[in-house]
Design a protein around this nucleic acid. Sequence first.
DNA 1: CTGAAAGCGCTTACAG
DNA 2: CTGAAAGCGCTTACAG
Lengths: 335, 335
Amino acid sequence: MSKRPTIIDVAKAAGVSKSTVSLVLQNSSSVKEETRALVHQAIKDTRYVYNRAAANLRGAGAGLVGLIINDLRNPYYTELAVSVQMKLAERGFATSIGNSDEDPALQEQLIASMIEHGVSALMIAPAYGGDVAPFKDIQQAGIPTIQVLRSTGFDTASFPLFSMDYDAGGILATEHLLENWGNNVAFVGGIETHDITIERKSGYLRKMGEAGLDPVSFHGKANRRFGYETALKITRDRPDIKGIVTFNDLVALGMLAGFAQAGVKVGSDIGIVGFDDIEEASQCFPQLSSVRCDVKTFGQQTADVLLNWVEENKQPKAQVRYPVDLVVRASSSKT
Amino acid sequence: MSKRPTIIDVAKAAGVSKSTVSLVLQNSSSVKEETRALVHQAIKDTRYVYNRAAANLRGAGAGLVGLIINDLRNPYYTELAVSVQMKLAERGFATSIGNSDEDPALQEQLIASMIEHGVSALMIAPAYGGDVAPFKDIQQAGIPTIQVLRSTGFDTASFPLFSMDYDAGGILATEHLLENWGNNVAFVGGIETHDITIERKSGYLRKMGEAGLDPVSFHGKANRRFGYETALKITRDRPDIKGIVTFNDLVALGMLAGFAQAGVKVGSDIGIVGFDDIEEASQCFPQLSSVRCDVKTFGQQTADVLLNWVEENKQPKAQVRYPVDLVVRASSSKT
DNA sequence: CTGAAAGCGCTTACAG
DNA sequence: CTGAAAGCGCTTACAG
C-alpha cells in the first residue's frame, strides 16, 4: 500500500536475485522457462510496476516517442496523430504529444521538453519559420527524427522527410477538372510562400501551362472560413470560373457552404476537388471529390519506420513520398 | 558531442558543488543571486540538458501528465486534448496522450503504460464498459486523476468528475424548438444506454413530459453517418417531425447533409439544434444552432485544477459542472 | 548560503 | 543459467 514494490521485492518473492528479475523483464532468452514463470507469478503477487525512470537512467530506452504537430485541430493532422499514437502503443511505446499551433517558438519549447524527457524518437510536422537551433539540439542528443507531411527545406539527410506525392495529386485534380468543366480552373487556399502550398499547387500550374491557360489563384489560410469567403468572392467577381482545385478539404468544405449560401449548385454549376480526402469528404453534401492522401496508412507505416530506426538502427531514406489518387464524387460530377 | 553533460560538469564549469546546481535547477530561494547567475551561465556553456529520468527516480515529479481520450478523432475531444495539452505545456508539463478508441481493453493498456512512465497526474475521458482493475492500480499508485466529460458511474470521491451541465443544455434546446417549431420534436443520436446519452437527453425528456408530449428518439452512434441516415429516414417515415435536438453536432451535421440530399430545407421546413458548438457549427450551411459547451475553456480550467492538485495537493470537489448556453443560428431560425 | 554523502530502482558486464 | 557489484544523474537531509 505504502511503497511501490521494486525488483528486489519481486526477487525475494520469487526466490531469485534481482538481476534475474531484470532479465525476465527484458525478455532475455537466457532465463530458464521455469524461473521465468516463477518471476512472473511473483510480479503478479507483489503488484509490481516497472519503473521506467530507473531503467531509462541506466541506459534503457525511455519507451516514449515525441510527436509534434503544427495544427492538431486540423482533421488531417488529427488522423495522423491518432494513427501514429495507436501504432506506437501497439509496439509498446507511449506517445508524448505537442501542438505547436504553427508557432515556431512553441515548437522550440516542445522540442526542448521532449529532449528533457528523454524521448527515444521524434516525429515532427513542422511549423514554418522556425530557427535551426532546436534541430541542432535534437541532433546533438542523437534522437532519431522524421519530418512528416511538410518540408521546411531542412536537412533531410539528418531528418528524413516522409510525405505524399502532392505534385501528382495536383495533376490528377487539374486534369479531371479541365476535362469536365472547361478551361477556367482556379486554385484556392494555402499561404502562397509555404513549401507545402508550392508543392500542392505545382501540378495545377504545370497542367495549366501545358494547356496554354492562365492560372488563377486565391491564397489564404487553409481553413473553412477562407473557403467560405472565397466562394462568395468568386460568385461575385469571377462567375466565369467553373472548376476549382483547393489546397485541402477544409477549404473545399468552406466553399461548399459559401456556394450553398450564394445559391450556386456545386456539381452542376461548378466543379470542386478537395485535397486530403478526410473522412468528412464522403459525408457532406454534395459529397466532395478529393485527392486521397491516405494519412492513416501513412501514419502507421511511418511510425513503423521510425521505430525500426530506434530498435534496429535502420536509418530511413532521406525522402519518401507516398502515392495519392483521385476520388471522384458528386462535387465534380456533372449532373 | 559524445556524452550528455551532467550537473557535475555544470558544477565544475561554475566552480560550485553539484548540490548547488541542483538547487538552482529547482529555483530554490536559498541560492545567492550571484551564484545562480554563475550556474545559469555554466548551463549554457556546457549545453546542459536536464535529465528528468534521474530526477524522477530520486522522487521529483515526472513533469508528465497522461491524457486518455475515448475518441480523439471527434472534434469535440480533439479540442479538449489540444486545450489541455497547451495549458499543461504553459505550466511546464509534457503530455502523454492515448486514444482508447472507445475500447476498454485499449484504455486499460494505456493506463498501465502511463503508470509505468510515472505520470504525475491523469485526465481521462473514459470509454464505457471498462473494468475497475486499472482504476484500482491508479489509486494504489496515488496518481491524481480527473474524469472528464463522461461519467461512468464511477467513484467520484477518488476520481472527481468534471463535466458540463448537459441537462440544462437539453432543456434550452427543447424549449427553443417547442416554441418555434411546434410540438413534434425528436431527439436523435447517442447510444441509448450510455450515461452521457441519458444526461444529454434528460432535459429533452423532462420538457416534453411537462408539455404532455410523447418523446420520440432515434438512437445510434454519435457520428455524421448516423445523422445522415436518420435524416433520410425521418423524411421518409416521419415527415410530421418539425424540430430535432441532436446528441451532438456531428449528428446534426450529418442530418444537414441528409436533408440537403432529400431536398428538405433546414431552417424553413424543419429546425435543428446541435450539441457542443464545435467550430464547424458556425461554418457550415445553414449555420447550425447548438448548445454551446465551451470545451476549450473547460480544458484549460480543468488542467489548472489537476495541476493544482499535483503541486499544492488541493483535492478538487467530487463533481463540477460547467454551464452551457444555447447559440441560435440559421438551422433553427424560421426564415 | 554551500558542500559531502547516501540512495532512488534499475541494467550491465563479469564471474561462476 | 544465475548472483554480486558498480553506477546511471539526480535530490535530499545533514553539517557547516
